[in-house]
Every structure is written in C-alpha cells, then in structure tokens.
Amino acid sequence: MRYLVTGVTMAAAIALAGCAKKAPEELPPPPAAPAPAPTPAPTGPQPGTQAHFSQAMMGQDVIYFDTDKYDIDAEDQAALRQQAQYLLQYPSANATVAGHADERGTRDYNLALGERRATAAKNYLVSLGVPSTRLSTISYGKERPVATGSNPQAWAKNRRAVTVVVN
C-alpha cells in the first residue's frame, strides 16, 4: 500500500509538471478604454421650433395695438427685440407674422388692418437684422379672435400681431 500511495503521488507530480504554463507567442491587446457614457437625450422642445420659440418668448411672441392703429410702441419694440434675438440665434428658423383685428369694422377693413399690423412688426424685425427672406406675413383680420366678447377687454386682446416660427 505504501508503494501505491507513493506511485499515485509521483504520477500526480508528473502530471502536474507536464501542465506547466508556457508564455504565449503573442500577447493579447491591452484592454480598450471604456466607452463614454451616452449623452442624455435633450428634454423639452427642439430649438428652432414653434414650441421652443413660445417657451423662450414667455408671452413676448404677441404684440398689441390700439384701436385702428398699427404703430409699434416701446413695449412692442422690447418684445420684437426679444423675437429678433431668438431668430438671429437660430438661423434655420423662419417666421410668419400674423396680423389680427377686433370684431368691429368690416371684414375687408379688418383684413387690411391686420396686414398693416403684421407688416409693421415684420419691418421692425428686419430693422433689427432678421433677413426679410426668413419672414412672411398673413392677415386674419377679425376671423381668429383669442378673446370672445363684445367689450373693450376682448377687443384689446384681439388687436395683435403674433409671430409664429415655421420650418
């Protein structure tokens, strides 16, 4: 039995000796640098879109006019400057300025007044550096009121020019 244990031990030693590790002929490549973490997708509206413009303007995408007027006052100028800054920051964005009127007056008169209001706003944007080729106008006259009612408050809200970004 003694010989058996010795024989088994020697056989194991010989077997292990035969398993000696040899250096590989070619080393594996170094580990690759870890891949950068994916950039999170932006949240919110895409820049240069109407949704982004409205969000950035915070209500300054609309200017208001006095009765039968289409002149740009100081408050309107501030809103139009903000609009121009946006449009200059996003040169791929084009805009339409829509002119509106209150319900008083004939349809034809209000369409013409809405066009004068839209054109006045467009011309001011152009004077601030926005290329005229990126701006268009349209008049809705009294056809698209935002406030219903036949009272001075509703009329004041409807006498407006609205800038809308289009692509």
Rank of each mutant, 00 (worst) to 15 (best):
E75D: 09
E75W: 06
D76K: 12
D76L: 09
D76F: 02
Q77N: 05
Q77I: 10
Q77D: 00
A78H: 08
A79S: 12
A79W: 00
L80V: 00
L80M: 12
L80W: 04
L80H: 02
L80Y: 03
R81Q: 07
R81C: 01
Q82Y: 07
A84E: 11
Y86D: 02
L87Q: 10
L87V: 08
L87C: 10
L87F: 06
L88Q: 14
Q89R: 05
Q89D: 02
Q89V: 00
Y90E: 02
Y90G: 03
Y90F: 07
S92L: 11
S92A: 01
A93I: 01
A93W: 01
A93F: 00
N94M: 04
N94K: 09
N94P: 03
A95C: 05
T96V: 10
T96E: 08
V97L: 14
A98S: 11
G99A: 08
G99P: 00
G99E: 01
H100E: 04
A101E: 08
A101H: 05
A101K: 04
D102F: 02
D102A: 12
E103P: 06
T106Y: 11
R107F: 09
R107G: 07
R107E: 15
Y109I: 11
Y109L: 13
Y109Q: 14
Y109P: 09
N110M: 03
N110E: 11
L111H: 13
A112E: 15
A112G: 13
L113W: 06
L113I: 13
L113C: 06
L113N: 03
G114D: 11
G114K: 15
E115V: 06
E115T: 14
R116G: 02
R117T: 07
R117W: 05
A118S: 03
A120P: 01
A121C: 04
A121T: 04
A121K: 07
A121V: 02
A121H: 05
K122P: 01
N123M: 00
N123G: 03
Y124W: 02
L125K: 05
L125M: 06
V126I: 14
S127F: 08
L128I: 08
L128K: 08
L128S: 05
L128W: 08
G129P: 14
G129Q: 06
G129L: 09
V130C: 10
V130S: 11
P131A: 06
S132L: 07
S132Q: 15
S132E: 15
T133C: 05
T133H: 09
R134W: 03
R134V: 06
R134S: 05
R134E: 01
T137W: 09
T137G: 06
T137Q: 09
T137I: 11
I138F: 13
S139W: 10
S139Q: 13
G141P: 13
G141E: 11
V146R: 07
V146H: 03
A147N: 01
A147P: 01
T148A: 00
G149P: 02
G149D: 08
S150M: 12
S150W: 13
N151F: 01
N151V: 02
N151M: 01
W155L: 14
K157D: 14
K157Y: 13
K157T: 07
N158M: 14
N158L: 06
